[in-house]
Amino acid sequence: MRGRVATLPGHLGVSAPHTKRGVKRSVTDNNIGEKVIAIIMREQHLEPGVVKLDSSFAELGIDSLDAVNILFAMEEEFKIDIPDAIAQNMKSVSQAVDGLTRVLEGKDISDLVAMAKGESPAASSAS
């Protein structure tokens, strides 16, 4: 998953607009679930009603490249950077919604970081 954000060589004189990312946004409308479903529907060209909160990516036919594409689309939509730890654990609609909510609300994601490293959450919190 690393390397998904391209770094431009400095000599091009093009500064990547990273500054607009990472800005903490408060989530007041709280329709993240609906937005995520809409994004997945759009990117996967799926009919309305097919994508549900409890759908797994596998049953929607979403492979790893599709998942990266959906991740990019969510980052664009919400103007945020989604950490790799969340991206790697995003294998269902509910996981996507949960991960996104935690980023938007600035919540702790150390359990996901541990899972991404292959550790169990319990072992991580003990260390």
Partner: peptide, 16 residues
Amino acid sequence: NLYAKQATRLHPFTIP
């Protein structure tokens, strides 16, 4: 997109 429009990344399907 990358050079002129200053996108920071390309579509994940670009290589395939």
